[in-house]
Design a protein around this nucleic acid. Structure first.
Length: 575
RNA sequence: GCGCCUGUAGCUCAGCUGGAUAGAGCAUCGGACUUCGGAUCCGAGGGUCGUAGGUUCGAAUCCUACCGGGCGCGCCA
């Protein structure tokens, strides 16, 4: 029980019961960080209304049942009925020692593990990855890491767009160009796709061949399947190179493209029809989940079988829900998709629930995110109005990071500079994406994300490297955790920050909002900087004080490194 | 037309699910032991929280209406 807030919550819950009886046992003490103390408890104000008594009097009664002298150094009533709580140095010191020797930074596995099935990244085969995929990939990866750290079983699903009508034209184009086109498809996917599209639009004969090819593909024609496979494999190899560059934990084993649901689609329609959930409408089979209306107040359909007998994405998405709960045993389905798909997903969830494929405790969540904007505040594009290739964007970030690293630290070897540039450049891109509330759009700006000031990855990486540097310079074995003694205000602030790491990770686990972790890490880094400024470590007044501060420095480094790690960002030892 | 998201300092963003005087970073201005990594730290100025009502001890946060921006809304994914 390293996190002081857990101890305090328990103590205050007990005190509330002691004061007002077990019927108030469920009352939340409303423990919050405070600018006036270490924490403040706000429960008295709410209780006052229920009990019809003056708030300050209620607060006094709570305090009467509170044991002093242990964790709590002081607890005082302030203002209308707030209780300001200050922890004792002994308690803080003990908590820091516990965490420092625990090896897991206070992160305990959850008592209620889920089988999490998380759908993210999901690029389209035979199409270039672009900024649109950046957010899903980065956010999904961070969330997967956080949930794993909390002890959930996490199943990653890369829901590739590897099926459907475009593959008719892509295969025909591949056939027209032969092997040369296959090579081409890997080196410049955008051009390959555009060329196929152009032919499809301008050449009716080609368009007809393409439609025939789709039929062949869906009916399982071996020759067609082989060509399709060729396209898929080339793309997957390409994506994996990007994932490696990004440091994202997606591998072949996580591939779960739309095609895997092909054999399951007919069953989905059959099941929904049998249950009476699907009805025919204008020649198509539709499910009308309640509560969704379109223009003219007409109910909105999920079209699960088109007029021509084909299946669209709604059917695939329903098959995926069914697969993830029934076959994979998922209890928490997570979809990391842009916010425009919100309504569609809600309809899918609703229909799946009606069909019994999404029943408690299983539930589904849409982790929605906004767009990446350019400096002009519009959708991020190149000067020619083209979508930005993800590789170009990442290469650019690494290149810029390299010139910064070269300028700031020229004595590092060329190899080291290159390696650090990659860590810093990629980290900057990821952190910029993760550090603001994901539902909002954000402006992509190399200069700001690579700045060493402010809430950026380089600043955090620098703070970590500085800690490591001190530990190197100490030229002694790291003192044992028992050396930790918290005394000064700066040490107290740092200790409080370090100890709240687990509760922040838990908050992200719950909200699926990585920016909370970013905000925490930034606050931790600035708190450390303040500590570092006024509390000499290597030049401390006594060996005991030095050892204590070395423990704090080491714990800060480990927390920064682990926190960044949960975001998928590497913290180098020097930079 | 209906629905979802969004509006906080000059700029970029937080605000822990209703708590005290709304906070950071850039930028601006002023400082710091002749640097345990100054790639740092301390301080100052800067706000009708889009607008108007409402709910209550208390609202940036919840409710309603309006204004401005973005995105969806039947056989594409």
């Amino acid at each position: 029980m390293a996190d002081p807030s857990l101890t305090l919550e328990r103590l205050f819950r007990d005190a509330i019961v002691a004061a007002f009886g077990p019927e108030q046992g469920a009352v939340d003490p409303l423990l919050r960080p405070s600018q006036f103390a270490d924490y403040q408890v706000n429960a008295a104000l709410g209780l006052a209304k229920v009990l019809e008594r003056p708030p300050r009097q209620v607060a006094e009664q709570i305090l009467a049942g509170l044991p002093l002298g242990g964790a709590i150094a002081s607890a005082e009533i302030a203002g209308p009925g707030f209780i300001n709580v200050v922890l004792s140095n002994e308690f803080l010191s003990g908590a820091v020692r516990d965490v420092a020797e625990s090896g897991n930074l206070g992160l305990e596995p959850t008592a209620n593990p889920d089988v999490v099935v998380i759908d993210y990244s999901s690029p389209n085969v035979a199409k270039e990855m672009h900024v649109g995929h950046l957010r899903s990939t980065i956010i999904g990866d961070a969330i997967a890491r956080v949930l794993e750290a909390r002890g959930h079983r996490v199943i990653r699903q890369n829901h590739f767009g590897d099926w459907g009508t475009p593959f008719g034209m892509l295969i025909e184009h591949l056939l027209d160009g032969g092997a040369e086109a296959a090579e081409h498809s890997v080196s410049d996917l955008n051009a390959f796709y555009r060329a196929a599209r152009a032919k499809f639009d301008s050449d009716p004969q080609f368009a007809e061949r393409s439609r025939q090819r789709v039929v062949l593909l869906q009916s399982g024609d071996p020759g067609t399947l082989q060509m399709w496979q060729q396209l898929v494999q080339a793309s997957q190899a390409y994506f994996e190179r990007i994932y490696a560059l990004l440091g994202v934990g997606l591998r072949g084993e996580h591939n779960a493209g739309e095609s895997i649901y092909n054999p399951r689609l007919a069953g989905v329609v059959a099941a929904l029809t049998e249950q009476g959930l699907a009805v025919e409408d204008d020649g198509a089979m539709c499910v009308f989940p309640p509560g969704f209306k379109g223009r003219d107040d007409k109910p909105l359909p999920l079209i699960i079988r088109k007029k021509d007998g084909g299946y669209g994405y709604a059917t695939t998405d329903l098959a995926a829900v069914r697969y993830r709960t029934v076959e994979l045993g998922g209890t928490r389905l997570i979809y990391v998709l842009g916010s425009p798909q919100s309504q569609h997903l809600q309809m899918v969830f609703s229909a799946a629930a009606l069909a019994g494929w999404l029943a408690p405790p299983a539930r589904a969540e849409h982790v929605a995110f906004g767009s990446v904007l350019g400096a002009d505040g519009k959708m991020f594009k190149t000067r020619d109005g083209e979508v930005v290739r993800l590789v170009d964007l990442l290469d650019d970030a690494v290149r810029r990071a390299k010139s910064v690293v070269h300028e700031k630290n020229p004595e590092l070897s060329e190899d080291e500079q290159a390696q650090i540039a990659r860590i810093v450049g990629i980290g900057a891109v990821k952190y910029a994406d993760l550090s603001s509330d994901r539902i909002k759009d954000y402006v992509f700006d190399y200069d700001r994300m690579l700045a060493f000031e402010g809430n950026t990855a380089p600043y955090l990486q620098y703070a970590h490297a500085r800690c490591r540097s001190i530990l190197r310079k100490a030229e002694v074995e790291l003192p044992s955790a028992s050396a930790a003694h918290i005394e000064t205000p700066e040490e107290r602030a740092l200790a409080l920050a370090l100890l709240s790491f687990p509760s922040v990770v838990a908050a992200v686990e719950d909200s699926l909002e990585p920016h909370r972790l970013c905000g925490y890490l930034f606050a931790l880094a600035t708190t450390f900087s303040t500590f570092f400024q006024s509390c000499p470590v290597l030049k401390a007044n006594s060996p005991a004080e030095r050892d204590s501060r070395l423990v704090l420095t080491d714990l800060t480094a480990r927390t920064l490194s682990a926190g960044l790690g949960l975001l998928g960002i590497v913290a180098p030892d020097r930079m």
